[in-house]
């Protein structure tokens, strides 16, 4: 357990202040995406507040993909991945700890920033609340799905935009249920709880499946 927590801490620390853009860059990127949309859509407040939850979710999705590049790539190139494997902690738990740490440093700040950005989009208080709740619950799934892509690309010795291209299609279910729960208060008869529970299920499933897949990818790339 000490080993696991130590690795979560290290991963959070490296993601937070990483060289290729840490948590702050992710937040600024999130802000930029959200701010750009009104310019593209035009100053129609009704339209903006209707698409607001979707805009916040897309911003969070893109921002959480930013940090994946170096998640395992750095460990592989500086030799730390070898050392991480020389312990009793299974590689699956190594992947889980890396993912959780990355989420703490990048996903969680996005969810915390969402209410403020929601104001920019003219969201109603209820929608701000539902959007924030779905982001808190849903961003771990985005990061964990991302760890699979990060591990695969690290195993192949590649990185960069390839990871985003690889990961984006697999985040679509999370996006669908996240946005439908987040937008529920604005679409009066639409249910909030059902998509929200499915979102929670997706996150829990990704917490189990993603580490196994990421560890398999890392093992396959051993040399």
């Amino acid at each position: 357990m000490t080993a696991f927590l130590a690795l979560v801490g290290l991963s959070a620390r490296l993601s937070f202040g990483g060289r290729s853009g840490g948590a702050l860059v992710g937040l600024v990127f999130f802000l930029a995406v959200v701010v750009v949309v009104p310019f593209a859509v035009g100053p129609d407040m009704n339209l903006l507040s209707r698409i607001g939850p979707a805009v916040l979710w897309i911003g969070a999705l893109l921002a959480s993909l930013l940090v994946l590049d170096r998640l395992f790539g750095d460990d592989r190139s500086d030799g730390a991945l070898d050392l991480l494997r020389l312990s009793d902690l299974p590689l699956e738990l190594v992947a889980l700890a890396k993912g959780l740490g990355a989420w703490l440093a990048t996903g969680l700040p996005l969810a915390v920033a969402a209410p403020f950005l929601g104001l920019l989009l003219g969201l109603s208080p209820n929608t701000v609340l539902s959007t924030t709740a779905t982001l808190v619950v849903g961003t771990p799934a985005l990061t964990m799905i991302g760890t699979i892509g990060a591990a695969l690309m690290a195993a192949l010795g590649r990185g960069g935009v390839m990871i985003a291209v690889l990961v984006l299609p697999f985040t679509i279910p999370v996006l669908i249920f996240g946005v439908s729960a987040a937008a529920a208060p604005a679409m009066a008869p639409a249910p909030f709880l059902a998509p929200f529970l499915i979102l929670i299920a997706l996150t829990l499933a990704s917490l189990v499946i993603a580490p196994i897949a990421a560890a398999a990818a890392l093992r396959a790339g051993l040399d």
Binding site: D74, D78, G79, A80, L83, S87, D88
Partner: peptide, 14 residues
């Protein structure tokens, strides 16, 4: 695995 120290070409430092 936990009995082994390995020093390779990369030092493994962050």
């Amino acid at each position: 695995a936990a009995l082994i120290h390995y020093i390779g070409h990369h030092d493994g430092h962050k």
